[in-house]
Design a protein around this nucleic acid. Structure first.
Lengths: 189, 189
DNA sequence: GTCTATACTAGGATAGAC
DNA sequence: GTCTATCCTAGTATAGAC
């Protein structure tokens, strides 16, 4: 219910703003325009201003990733199915490669700040969840971490490239490649 | 000679600033501090201000990439050697994964602007140069483009991830993966 | 919880002396 | 080519009425 929790609806707008324009690229005026709320209303929801807005966006992203990605990734069932579940959700999350990753945006536009640290932490957790899934399928520690990084890197890189080239196929190709990296046998390729 | 072309030295400082903090994250005060020059001196070199600074950085990046990457990539010699030459230069350029890509930073922090367009163009050219190299080795058009995107995506993604995780090995792994993607036989994997 | 009005700061840019 | 001084806008944040 939007009226019951208007803050959630606000955060979803903020999410879109930050993911596209980065931290410094978003002004309170932008937020005001995107939400239809006046400055004072915004400070009512986020007393500490823009920083609190970005924190809320990351917390929102953490909740969404935990529920939709991390938890399924380390749950029951064959590895392949869990990987495919993640890739399918990733494809939705990034609208088939059209929309940037809010974590990458905040990581690079707010270098060194608590915001960037929080975004970095979440990306680390994602890598760790992937590695844990591989481990549970018998892949050795170091190799699991290596493959998790390659796969998540492939996805993040595709988001950068697609933004530049507008070639959305590249995102699908990257998902396929990530899948191959993750689901390969235990031997190095 | 630094004194003969102080503008070049300036641009190199700007390059470092923009790559780390993004367009909006860099203030003229930052630039002033990083270069030791007062505002007026900066406007002497870049009359149109920050935008012109970012343009100069991209032009600098284009010149460097053209000389060190694009040209060797489509020159004489076996494909493998050309690829390895590029990867070696890429490793230097990004200091083994420690430093972000200025094109990715400007692409995402200045979404929709001429600056972002210029950064996007250069990333496209990079992809095209890679694809052209593959084509010259007999790889079919579509497959060449696919592999070029995957390889450059792997590199760009690793820069994002390493920034978050501080695991520099991930960058080296990504270079290895990019190499495998590019140098694989003509058949799809 | 939202609005209008306002304070305050930082950031971008310019003028003119040297 | 660099400096000091200054202007102006945009941006963040707050106060207080409704």
């Amino acid at each position: 219910m939007t009226n019951a929790e208007p803050r959630i609806a606000l955060i979803e707008r903020l999410f879109e703003l930050f993911r596209v324009k980065g931290y410094h690229g978003v002004s309170i005026a932008d937020v005001s325009e995107a939400t239809g709320l006046g400055r004072s209303s915004l400070y009512h929801y986020f007393p500490r201003g823009k920083e609190e807005m970005a924190e809320a966006v990351i917390a929102y992203a953490r909740a969404a990733l935990t529920r939709a990605v991390f938890t399924p990734l380390v749950s029951e069932g064959p590895l392949e199915a869990r990987i495919d579940g993640m890739l399918s959700l990733v494809s939705q999350l990034y609208a088939g490669g059209e929309t940037p990753c809010v974590l990458a945006s905040l990581l690079s536009s707010e270098a060194g700040s608590p915001i960037a640290e929080a975004a970095a932490r979440l990306l680390c957790e994602w890598t760790a969840a992937l590695a844990k899934a591989l481990r549970s399928a018998g892949v050795a520690e170091a190799e699991a971490l290596r493959r998790a990084s390659l796969a998540l890197g492939q996805i993040q890189g595709a988001l950068v490239l697609v933004r530049a080239t507008k070639r959305r196929e590249a995102f699908l190709d990257a998902l396929g490649e990530a899948r191959a990296i993750l689901i390969a046998g235990a031997h190095a390729r």
